[in-house]
């Protein structure tokens, strides 16, 4: 599904070139559940962003579902991730001005899905995540765990093939974190590929494979 070949990413600071990613080679199969680990500043989030096509890279090849991402224009890339990738953030990143319902609905709006269909899809996922009663609340009225649930629901609403999660439990207590991880395993069993960045060995263990990063390199 994903194939990264010799990916480099750097920034120039004065005369120095600082490498964020160095020679990353990675293959991800459909339905895999991968955890990326490593110390702060090792490039975990950058790698996740590159995979999610939110960040560009300077060198190398990236194939996603047989598309050569490095050859695509920004618009085409956006169309691609819009269709296949869902994002979950450590800080939830819900839109404060929108209700739970509207937050979850937003990606569908951007995919030009009809209103009646949107309604059914959002209702389904609210039901599944057991948050029907919260649908008219605004994010600030929810606890952190509930907000992250909404965040995941939003990421999943468009039925992505890949879920990218950047420390999804980082702002949650252990019980809430455990619930989220259980949910991830469940989703993975249903066929959604997941790549998560995490600091926690325990959370990493939910995955089928662990990738360790150090200074922008994959440690073998």
């Amino acid at each position: 599904m994903i194939e990264l070949n010799g990916i480099y990413k750097w920034v120039n600071s004065g005369n120095n070139r600082i490498f964020l990613l160095k020679d990353i080679n990675l293959k991800v199969q459909e339905g895999e559940f991968i955890s990326i680990m490593g110390p702060s500043g090792s490039g975990k989030s950058t790698l996740l962003n590159v995979i999610g096509m939110l960040d560009e890279f300077n060198e190398g090849e990236y194939n996603f579902l047989h598309e050569s991402v490095h050859k695509l224009k920004e618009k085409q890339r956006a169309a691609l991730y819009k269709l296949y990738i869902g994002f979950v953030f450590q800080a939830y990143h819900l839109i404060d001005e929108l209700t739970v319902y509207e937050n979850i609905e937003t990606p569908l709006i951007y995919q030009d899905i009809k209103a009646s269909e949107r309604k059914a899809m959002v209702a389904d996922i609210l039901d599944r995540f057991n948050i029907v009663g919260k649908k008219d609340l605004f994010p600030t009225q929810l606890s952190g765990g509930q907000q992250q649930l909404v965040g995941i629901a939003r990421a999943l609403i468009a039925k992505p093939k890949l879920l990218l999660a950047d420390e999804p439990t980082g702002n949650l207590n252990s019980k809430q974190g455990e619930e989220i991880m259980n949910l991830f395993s469940e989703l993975n069993k249903e066929g959604v590929a997941i790549i998560q960045v995490t600091h926690s060995e325990k959370n990493a263990a939910y995955g089928s494979r662990i990738i360790n990063l150090l200074d922008g390199r994959i440690e073998h």
């Binding site: 999610g52 939110l54 618009k75 956006a78 991730y81 819009k82 994002f87 990143h93 819900l94 839109i95 404060d96 001005e97 937003t106 990606p107 951007y110 995919q111 939003r154 468009a158």
Partner: peptide, 16 residues
């Protein structure tokens, strides 16, 4: 700024 970024991540085009 955050809202705009999020909308983009969720697939919003610039036009929208």
């Amino acid at each position: 700024i955050k809202e705009i970024g999020l909308r983009k991540v969720m697939g919003s085009g610039r036009k929208q």
